[in-house]
Structure formats: C-alpha cells, structure tokens
Computed example of a mutant assay.
Amino acid sequence: MRISPLPSIIIEPIVRAALLEDLGGAGDLTSDAIVPLEFPAVATLTARQPGIVAGLDVAALAFSLIDPSIKMAVALPDGSAVAAGETIATMSGRARGLLTAERTALNFLCHLSGIATATAMLVEAVHGHKARIVCTRKTTPGLRAPEKHAVRAGGGSNHRFGLDDAILVKDNHIAIAGGVRQAVGRARANAGHMVKIEVEVDTLSQLEEVLGLAVDAVLLDNMPLDELARAVMIADGRVVTEASGSITAATAAAVAATGVDLISVGWLTHSAPILDIGLDIVAVD
C-alpha cells in the first residue's frame, strides 16, 4: 500500500532532536577524524529480512539535515513490500554526512518499518472480514505522527491522534461521573457538532445502557469471543463496534469473525519488533 509522505514541518523537529542527541556538543568525532570532508560515496539501504517499508521520508530528512547535498533515490517507497537482500533506496553524496546521519536514519527507518510490517501481518490475518486494524495512543512519546503513519503504510487505520480529536469515555471517567449516563451526558453537553463520542464497556449490560444514549461507537474491552459476538448482535449496526485487549496475529481472525468493525492494537506502536535494515557503502571515489 503506497501512501504520501508526512509533511516535513511535522517530522523535522523530531528528526532534528534525534540528530542533536546523537551529535552532542562535539559532533561525529569518528567520521570527522577519519573521512575527508569532500570524500564522495554511494550507499544503499538494504533489508536484511522481509517486511513492509515505512519511514523513508524521516530517514531522508536525517541525511539532508546533516548534509543537504546528499541525494536519495527511492526504489521501494513507504508501503512497499521488501524481500531480504533487496535495496530500498540509494544515497549519494559526501561520505562523512552519510556516516554521521546513518544511525539516526536507521533508528527511525527500522522502527517504523517494523510497525508497518506488524500491521500488515494483522491486516492479512483478518482478510475476508470487515474488521479494520487500528492503532491507539500507546505511542512512543514524540513519535506519534510517524508511528501512526507507519500503521497506514502497513494497511491499517488510525484511531484518534490525541485527546483533542474525539471523546473516549473510559472506566475512570464513568467512576468519577457516577455512572455511564452521567458521563455521556456531560460529554455530549460539551462536544462540538463534529466531535464523535465513544464509550468503553466491559459487560453486555453496560453495552445495552450505552446504546440508549446516542453515542457513536463502543469500545468492547477484553470481552471473551462469545460475549464479543453477542455484543455485535446487540449493537446491530447502531454504533461502530471496536474490540480491544491483548489481540495478536494468532487471535485476530477469531476476533474479526465476531463481526466487529474495528480491532485496536496498542502493541503495534509500543512493542512491534524492528525490521532489520542496514546501510552499506557500495562505491567510493
């Protein structure tokens, strides 16, 4: 699945902070000492294992912030499937800049491609069902935009981006408000006309109460499969149904078979393993 890159204005502060963390107060002591300033080189980004590519725009920015003369030719853009040993992109420019930006670029590219690869695995697991795989707000602090972009690159969809783009009434809100009805009432009274309201429910009795409150979606949290299927039947299309709670590639198909609209998976962004990608110098002059 090919998707458009994130705007540079969104990712530049993230990449700049990562480079500054790595450069410290003295810069790249190793490359500065060993590599002549104008020494040219060509390098490739090569996958060491199969997966889905994501984060090339972030990686490219890391190189260009260190040395604007470095050029990247992309062979497999974000959303592409890559085989082990396949070249994702080729960079050309001054060797010192390539080596200085290498680790920061790879940190982003491997992490984000890992998220895309894990997402694609879950999307494939629920193929044939209507359920969509969505991420959550369980993201690495500071990396929410690129991590959610990586989920899209893997064929998934995004849940809310933050606290400010939807209302999600959870168990602690309900406890403080004194009940589901009170919590939803307060939410509805303060929601703008474009803001949707979702309510987390743990039981079928809670679900039946929520369905009488004109909400937009219900989060069916950690329900057993038989109860989840019953919840979908009770909802009967009146609200969007979202299943959540320790869902893996092994269990996703069974969850999707209950008929839910969405399956939200927090580990996609907080615990997906990286995709192993390396940078290799392939030519020097």
Rank of each mutant, 00 (worst) to 15 (best):
R137K: 11
R238S: 08
W267N: 13
G128I: 05
A41T: 09
L19K: 03
T90L: 03
G212F: 00
I10R: 05
A231W: 09
L109R: 04
T90P: 01
A118F: 10
P40W: 04
N172M: 03
A257P: 03
V74H: 12
I263E: 13
I133E: 10
L163P: 08
P146K: 06
I167A: 14
D285I: 01
S205L: 07
R137E: 09
L65F: 14
V284Y: 00
C135H: 12
S205F: 06
N222R: 00
R186N: 12
L20Y: 10
G237V: 07
I10H: 04
S205Q: 11
V58S: 06
E242K: 02
P68K: 13
A231G: 10
D261P: 09
Q49K: 15
T251P: 06
I263D: 15
D261T: 10
A243F: 00
E208G: 02
A272S: 15
P141R: 08
Q49L: 11
T119K: 05
E227M: 14
G27F: 09
H149I: 07
A252Y: 02
V265E: 10
S244M: 02
A18M: 03
G24R: 07
I176F: 14
L109F: 05
V134Y: 15
L61R: 14
A254G: 06
V123M: 12
V123L: 10
H193Q: 11
A118D: 13
I66C: 14
G192H: 05
L99C: 00
D22W: 04
